[in-house]
């Protein structure tokens, strides 16, 4: 990726390294993507609709195979990546608590029986995340009866409780009012800093994105261009 400017601390092993990746389904949407994601990065991916931002995120998440090149993941395959899709990915028939505890569950062995509840010593992570995001009072309600904004906070709480090394969020700040954007971003930032992890967020609101991100990836003419590093 010729246009990309990578500066800053690059001593540590990257969490993710995209090696000359072409992103897309049948046709490449973004080509020659060669970037690294380091711990502490908060990256905003910008660009008009349909240009391939979500596909890039899904490629990093391992949900879409790159058309060429390869994605090298330096985080644990189980629990290492937290993904908040545009449609949030919540289980609408389960309670808020059950959804948030799903994030905690991936820190347990994959052989831990799914029909058993999360062990008591792990429940605190879920409770703390719900309290931080102001949804603790909704813990026992099914997700399907919550408003769009409340559901977004549940999705965020699930990822915060998971404590992943890499957070991938697809327009997760939509439908939130200014106060809630502050609460959500403060909580996520705190989680990222305390876990020494990184975040890649696809965001439509450019102003908001530049406020919260320390790196900007702009998709332009089928290329990923890094605009800002601070």
């Amino acid at each position: 990726m010729n246009d990309t400017v990578r500066t800053g601390l690059e001593m540590s092993e990257p969490l993710v390294h995209l090696h000359d990746v072409a992103v897309g389904y049948d046709q490449p949407l973004i080509e020659e993507v060669d970037v690294e994601i380091q711990a502490g990065d908060v990256i905003a991916v910008l660009g008009p609709s349909g240009i391939g931002k979500t596909t890039l995120l899904r490629t990093i998440a391992g949900l879409v195979k790159p058309l060429s090149g390869h994605v090298e993941l330096g985080v644990a395959p189980r629990g290492g990546v937290g993904y908040i899709p545009q449609r949030l990915g919540l289980v609408s028939n389960l309670s808020v608590r059950s959804n948030v505890e799903m994030g905690v569950r991936v820190s347990l062995s994959k052989w831990y029986p799914p029909f058993l509840g999360v062990p008591k010593d792990h429940q605190g992570y879920a409770q703390q995340a719900m309290e931080d995001l102001g949804i603790a009072h909704l813990a026992d309600h099914p997700v399907r009866i919550l408003s769009g904004g409340q559901q977004r906070r549940v999705a965020t709480a699930k990822t915060v409780a998971q404590r992943p090394k890499l957070v991938l969020a697809d327009e997760f700040l939509g439908e939130l009012d200014d106060d809630n954007v502050d609460v959500v971003m403060r909580t996520v930032r705190h989680a990222i800093e305390s876990q020494n992890s990184a975040m890649v967020m696809v965001e439509h609101h450019e102003e908001l994105a530049t406020q919260v991100a320390n790196r900007i990836w702009r998709i332009k003419d089928h290329r990923l261009v890094e605009e800002l590093t601070r």
Binding site: G62, L63, P77, R78, K110, L168
Partner: peptide
């Protein structure tokens, strides 16, 4: 979306189903 979120998180097939 919930299935993809579960897959990206690394949940097992049994966990995803249940």
């Amino acid at each position: 979306a919930p299935l993809e979120s579960a897959k990206a998180m690394g949940m097992s097939r049994m966990e995803t189903a249940w």
